[in-house]
Deep mutational scan, measured.
Amino acid sequence: CHSECLGNCSQPDDPTKCVACRNFYLDGRCVETCPPPYYHFQDWRCVNFSFCQDLHHKCKNSRRQGCHQYVIHNNKCIPECPSGYTMNSSNLLCTPCLGPCPKVCHLLEGEKTIDSVTSAQELRGCTVINGSLIINIRGGNNLAAELEANLGLIEEISGYLKIRRSYALVSLSFFRKLRLIRGETLEIGNYSFYALDNQNLRQLWDWSKHNLTITQGKLFFHYNPKLCLSEIHKMEEVSGTKGRQERNDIALKTNGDQASCENELLKFSYIRTSFDKILLRWEPYWPPDFRDLLGFMLFYKEAPYQNVTEFDGQDACGSNSWTVVDIDPPLRSNDPKSQNHPGWLMRGLKPWTQYAIFVKTLVTFSDERRTYGAKSDIIYVQTDATNPSVPLDPISVSNSSSQIILKWKPPSDPNGNITHYLVFWERQAEDSELFELDYCLKGLKLPSRTWSPPFESEDSQKHNQSEYEDSAGECCSCPKTDSQILKELEESSFRKTFEDYLHNVVFVPRKT
């Protein structure tokens, strides 16, 4: 048989008469490798580009789960590009990614509803959504962080984005990388972005840091009482949809009607710091009717980097990364020049730590249904340095008659930039024990000054392991946590139920 035959053949030295091919099969003959313009397919066939392209389009058009959109890589027609490569849609070739590779997620039936953290986790790592997304989240724990972890990498949506009755959302900033909504599939009414009845939605994105392009379709905003109209108009300008909307697409009466839409800028007039305090004062603000001013709200939190936005980490279910302080308005003076500047002394802060701070007014709604208010920009203030805590785990070892090696770990709280350490030492008198000992005694162990690591005695271990207080009263049991108490109650309830079950099964009433 021919060298490319495997198993047997019907005619000697003829690659077209093989029972099976050793390498690849091409047009009725066995070959060692697939010549151009053919590609290896499933490690035994040679196919042309049209064959591989037909497989790709067949799966793409069917949208069946589990099928493969075949691509070409290293002269092979394979189910998908290997790690580190992405497909070129024009020629199906796998090309190296520039940075992290995109991950295209194809949605069944063309859309997916995100109504819980669990459903959001199914899209973790996706960068391109081939379909439409509907966000409908009523509640949950730590929602802002969970949504950002699972949806934060999405850069492109081919269909539309719909935010509907998501009472738990305060902001859409968890879509931190969303840059493009194509609108290839539109919501009824030709809408590519749809926001309806979101009672706590206050911000779409921080438009000073976020760009969003909507290729096709219109915007729809109705019944978002805490979303200011200025935020919607800003989205029109940034996304390129200005002029597409009709009169009733953006409701003037049901958007922002319960919001404090600040239209003035508060400026800080005085800032002073110490290692654990920050004193702030800002310019006074009074609405047209000074009785509408209820006070100020001061927001602050630790910020290692200057990239904080107002609604980071917030949701309507209680999660809030900001510390909020309510401040009463100052006494009002008739003389504008003698107006008191409101302020606040922030206490209990960490030394040498940068804080993000902003302040906003708290006002009631005027009778004319106009909203007044003022808010400052987010500023960054760093507390002063102070003395560091003591170095940890000092170790001293003498390696000769004239040297001592000293080692330690950095302090747990540096409280500033540590530039150097101060080492103090003092000579001590020799131990009298060394002169009084009889060095001729056998088995004498000389006193040693070398360091030995501390260890816990058996008594201390027994005390720590004991669940009861000892007789001397030195140790006591740790208080039980809520989960331990709940577990004990469940076990007790189970024992009672099981005992009742045994009584009912074992003891049967005697027939009379």
Rank of each mutant, 00 (worst) to 15 (best):
S376L: 01
N150R: 08
S171T: 07
S173F: 09
W322C: 02
N141E: 12
N141S: 12
P287V: 14
E302D: 09
K409P: 06
S319R: 10
R179V: 06
T113N: 09
K162P: 00
T185C: 02
L169A: 03
S171C: 07
L293N: 06
L204G: 04
F175T: 01
F268P: 03
Y160N: 06
T353W: 02
R272L: 03
E368K: 13
L161T: 02
Q245P: 08
A259T: 11
K177Y: 07
C228I: 01
S274M: 12
L294T: 10
P284M: 15
V381P: 04
S401Y: 09
R272V: 01
G159A: 14
Y167H: 07
S333Y: 04
L293T: 10
D257A: 02
P351L: 02
N263A: 07
R370N: 12
N307T: 05
C261A: 07
I405T: 07
W344F: 11
N211Y: 05
V238T: 07
N334Q: 13
D249K: 15
F290D: 10
I327F: 14
A195D: 01
N198H: 01
V238K: 12
V325L: 14
F268T: 03
E184V: 14
S396W: 10
F193A: 02
P411F: 02
Y355L: 01
R369M: 10
S376P: 00
L151W: 02
S208T: 06
R369D: 02
Y380E: 01
L204P: 02
T273D: 02
T364N: 15
Q258P: 13
W322A: 09
E146Q: 05
L204K: 02
D249A: 05
M297R: 00
S260V: 09
S400W: 04
K350F: 03
E236P: 04
R124Q: 04
R165V: 07
G295K: 14
W282N: 01
G313Y: 13
R347V: 13
G373P: 04
Y285N: 13
I250P: 06
T215V: 07
F268C: 04
S119A: 03
K177L: 07
K234H: 15
H341R: 08
S333H: 11
I154N: 00
N136T: 15
V238N: 15
D377W: 15
G152H: 10
E368P: 06
V324T: 05
S402D: 09
L107R: 07
L201W: 03
G240P: 05
P394S: 15
A374E: 03
A120N: 01
Q354N: 12
R179H: 14
K253Q: 10
T273Q: 05
L107F: 05
G152M: 02
H106V: 11
K253N: 07
G217P: 02
R164F: 14
S116Q: 02
V325M: 13
L153K: 06
A259N: 03
D315E: 03
D197I: 03
A144F: 15
P287I: 07
F275Y: 11
R138K: 08
W282E: 00
L349V: 03
G256D: 05
G343P: 03
G159S: 03
N334R: 14
P330W: 14
D377H: 04
T118F: 13
L180A: 13
V324I: 02
C105G: 00
V170Y: 15
L392C: 07
L212R: 00
F296A: 11
I181M: 02
S158H: 03
E187Q: 03
N334I: 11
T323S: 08
D393I: 06
Q203R: 12
F175R: 00
N340S: 08
D257E: 04
T353R: 07
P351G: 13
R176L: 05
T118N: 03
K375Y: 07
A195L: 10
R369I: 08
P391Q: 01
V128I: 07
F358D: 01
M297P: 01
G256I: 03
T353L: 05
F175Y: 03
S116D: 06
S338C: 15
I154S: 01
E155L: 09
G217L: 01
Y305A: 11
A120L: 07
F174N: 01
S319M: 13
E155I: 15
P330R: 15
K360D: 03
G243K: 10
I134M: 08
T215E: 13
D206E: 15
N198R: 00
P336H: 04
T215W: 01
A259R: 08
R164M: 13
G139A: 06
T241Q: 11
P287A: 04
R370D: 12
S132M: 01
D367Y: 10
K409L: 10
S321Q: 05
L147Q: 01
V308G: 14
Y167P: 12
K177N: 02
L227W: 00
Q339L: 11
G131T: 01
C228H: 11
V397H: 15
E246D: 14
V381C: 02
G131M: 01
N255S: 12
L252S: 11
S166G: 07
S389M: 15
E156F: 08
P342D: 10
L392D: 02
W344N: 14
K112G: 15
P410K: 15
E146P: 15
E236S: 08
Q314P: 01
L133V: 12
F290P: 09
I163A: 04
R202L: 13
T273M: 14
K301Y: 04
L294W: 08
Q382C: 04
Q339S: 04
K177A: 06
I157M: 11
